[in-house]
Amino acid sequence: MQNVIRNVGTEFIKSKKTFAWWLVILGAAFMPVFVSFVFLSKWKHLIPQQGHNPWDDFTEMSWKGMGFLYTPLFIVLLTCLFFNIEHKNNTWKHIFTLPILKSSIYLNKLLTLLIFIALFYILYIPIWIGCGFFVGLIKPQLQLTNHAPDYISLLSLCFHSFIASLGVLAIHFWLSIRFKNMIIPIAIAIVGGIIWVALYQGRVEEITYFPYAYNYSTVNPPYWVEQKMFGIFPQHEMLSILYFILFSALSYRYFIKTFKG
């Protein structure tokens, strides 16, 4: 365990002074700030009716924005930037001559990336709440300060969004090892994004099997697809976990057997 903490620590040192940290901070802040701006500029249309909690609108707008293309692209960019540290500096050859198992290098990278994504959600929560109350103070008519957000729902959304992101994370983890040029995984993500929007617009049932759509499906499940549940996970989140296992196994094998830096 001590080794894991020490080695994950080295990954955090490597990420110092890189855009990856700014991406996490700005990424967590962007949507709450953007939604706050919308609330402040369109406040007249958003005054809640009697008995309605305005935080529900704030939640819906924020999470729909998050799930649309934002979170998948954030994860893709973060993964690319993270691997680009080694690719750009040509440091793989140094890492592979250190007394550390290749499997440990792989697991440290994956673990660090998962921590980064978790940090994104951890930062998102207070920023989102802070923004909501700030908007409530500026525009009391919106009654955001008179009500409280549904904290349980907020934590649950963060958790399910994290699970829904795992599939895309594993795919791009593999792609980032496979291709040194980070444009390729980003291009694949953009194409993936376009395809999922087309699948959504076309009300295609197979959207359940398309990992780039999972974040939005968590926030706004496609009504034309029968929602099967596996314990606490809807079908698409279960598939996200399966994609994560499948692509992690694929990238692990590639990293151990073939990848030489």
Binding site: I13, K16, T18, I85, N90, K93, H94, T97
Partner: peptide, 13 residues
């Protein structure tokens, strides 16, 4: 300890 061709360094650090 090894040094192969150009040293592998994290230039931003």
């Amino acid at each position: 300890g090894s040094l192969i061709e150009q040293p592998s360094l994290y230039e931003h650090l």
